[in-house]
Design a protein around this nucleic acid. Structure first.
Lengths: 357, 357
DNA sequence: CCGTTGGTGTGTAACGATACACACCTAGAC
DNA sequence: GTCTAGGTGTGTATCGTTACACACCAACGG
């Protein structure tokens, strides 16, 4: 990249003007100047005009938010802890929907929204402590993530999405186990060789394919609960879990799921039912099936999760839940700051043409 | 949603402990307590241990970020103004890549990142003024957006991505006109009926299809420059702009582009070349072509923009640029706070199999 | 034995704004 | 004419932290 000249940023040595200077120039008291901004109705039209004129002349940009938040005790900002690698955080469509819900509430209430990306490094805790926010919402953290302790330690209202449950912090999410069991029933009905496409089981984010294994070691509560739900659904349908193929994708997107599904479908004994953890993944599976010439749902039944637009387009059986609403619920709970609440968000299974029966 | 009981949030009437209280309990001066946090090496092991013990006992969560930022003069936070409707801001893959680049730099430097969604309402300016941040990065605003004045008025380092150029503010972006002209040349080569799929022309975000029109009224500089580049490319190839079909999509995603492309391909005189504004849109076009049984590039040449993963997968001719790098460049420029710079980000046209010749 | 150095502790004065309480004045009620 | 109410202006005391400057002491070289 090349750089070319630019304009100067502000008057050379000019440090920002202060309210006291504005007041002096306007020949009113500091408080009158302060009220001009915080409660305009409190001052006479005349005084207000004088103050604004002086502010204009000095280039006063309004009360300093730092000083204001110290004095007032609130920052008008909500902190969002994204417990995911940066590369994925913004590209994960589920995260996007969740963030949109938070942003909605923040906008309605005139709050800002501070994103705190968690890297797994020890300074994560310091970042949480250093964040000037009135409350926290935590998205997809591992159960043992030290950032959770940091959030608890700052003693501000905080809500965790999906889990884990942390004493003193709020919790918002669906019953992933029950929902997975229910949608798994639709996926595995009439199947002979069921399979699951999963989110990462650990922070290392490898793509792997293997038989279903113990889920105790899975540190992401949402993923673990869904896996357990699928295990129950498989059991309900008469399958041993270690006979179910579980493919783990490093990230939540259609392209990777398509690649993994293609591998599965090329196996000597390919699955004839695949339960995925998102509609994006399921869409990838459908594309892989189309490429492999496999008919959905006759030769392969597929289920997604979220009931997003793509599920409607493709006619996917899916778990309907609103991450947007859940994000909004988290934000509201964190900002209202009452006692820590647990919110069980609603879900249903929407049956469409991607599953048999 | 149903709510169930939760744990109490903190000790009943306990307001947060202060550094002075910690110092008193530890029997050291306030400064010793302060240094324990800000410069641990400055105090003896013994004193540090006493302070930390006292802090632990009082449940002191560390220095209050509000007071610290007031005293220090910096907030260690970067503001990001998202000039897009909330629903789209997080779901636009280009925005996601851009934000990831910003987040990268913020993480490296230990900065937080405050998102300021802009709604178009008058209180947007107030939000910008109220944001406790050290600098701003502005993403996709319309040229006449009052939020730009607000950003300028707070007199903090700020960088606008893509445009418009604002006196005193930095600017980062590619030469969209030149890039569009170049990729348009690839798209329209050998075509008889060229078409363009565009981003929204105004905040109203309607989906429309019509002949190429004047671009002066387009308020988003990036979109306008690309349209003008496509117009030039069309002229270079001997087409009048009002004979080029321009389809405007309300949002940047594959599904909508697919629907729009399907409509175009169903016209009595369907286009045989489509230049899109993102790879996601181009992917939608390719899917629509496949559905319509049109061969790419023989019957329809397609170009995208960004050279994202999907462009590689589908073999799309595309404008290679890195929004991630550009996000990082914006963040760096805003945080370094030097004089306002203009950065012309690099781009090239990558030719692949989706275009003729 | 003196002067210098470096490590450690501390008091004071901001940083910029606002809550609060009080003073003053004009109207209007009685 | 007195009293109350409401509108407007202002002084002071914080909010919680950190920069700065200085004091003190032990160690050490000359």
């Amino acid at each position: 990249m090349t750089t070319s000249g630019g304009a100067r940023r502000s008057s050379p040595g000019a440090k920002r003007a202060t309210l006291a200077e504005v007041a002096a120039l306007a020949e009113v008291s500091v408080m009158t100047a302060s009220y001009t901004y915080s409660r305009p109705a409190r001052v006479s039209d005349e005084a207000r005009a004088k103050v604004l004129a002086a502010a204009e002349r000095l280039g006063y940009a309004g009360p300093d938010p730092r000083a204001r938040s110290l004095r007032r005790g609130s920052t008008q900002t909500l902190g969002v802890v994204l417990g995911e690698h940066l590369t994925y955080a913004f590209e994960d469509p589920q995260a996007a929907r969740f963030l949109a819900g938070i942003a909605q509430v923040c906008t309605e209430r005139g709050y800002g929204m501070t994103i705190l990306p968690v890297t797994g490094a020890p300074q994560d805790a310091a970042r949480v402590r250093a964040a000037a926010v009135d409350g926290f919402v935590v998205w997809t953290t591992a159960e043992d993530d030290p950032v959770l302790d940091a959030v608890r330690a700052v003693r501000r209202p905080a809500v965790v999405h999906g889990g884990p449950a942390v004493p003193g912090l709020g919790l918002v999410g669906v019953d992933n186990r029950a929902a997975a069991r229910a949608v798994g029933a639709a996926a595995f009905a009439g199947a002979a060789r069921p399979a699951v496409i999963s989110f990462p089981l650990s922070r290392s984010r490898e793509t792997t394919v293997g038989p279903g294994a113990a889920t105790d070691g899975v540190l992401f509560p949402v993923t673990r609960d869904r896996l357990e739900g699928y295990r129950l659904a498989a059991a309900d349908a008469g399958f041993r879990w270690d006979r179910v193929t579980v493919a783990v994708c490093a990230r939540n997107d259609a392209a990777e799921a398509e690649a993994v599904a293609a591998r599965l479908l090329a196996l000597p004994e390919p699955p004839d039912a695949i339960a995925a953890m998102s509609d994006e993944q399921a869409a990838g599976v459908v594309r892989a099936a189309r490429t492999a010439g496999r008919s959905v749902p006759r030769e392969l039944s597929v289920t997604g999760w979220d009931d997003a637009d793509v599920a409607v387009e493709l006619g996917l059986t899916s778990v309907a839940q609103s991450l947007r609403d859940q994000g909004a619920a988290c934000a509201r709970a964190a900002l209202d700051g009452g006692p820590a609440v647990t919110v069980a968000a609603p879900w249903t299974v929407v049956r469409r043409a991607s599953t048999r029966g």
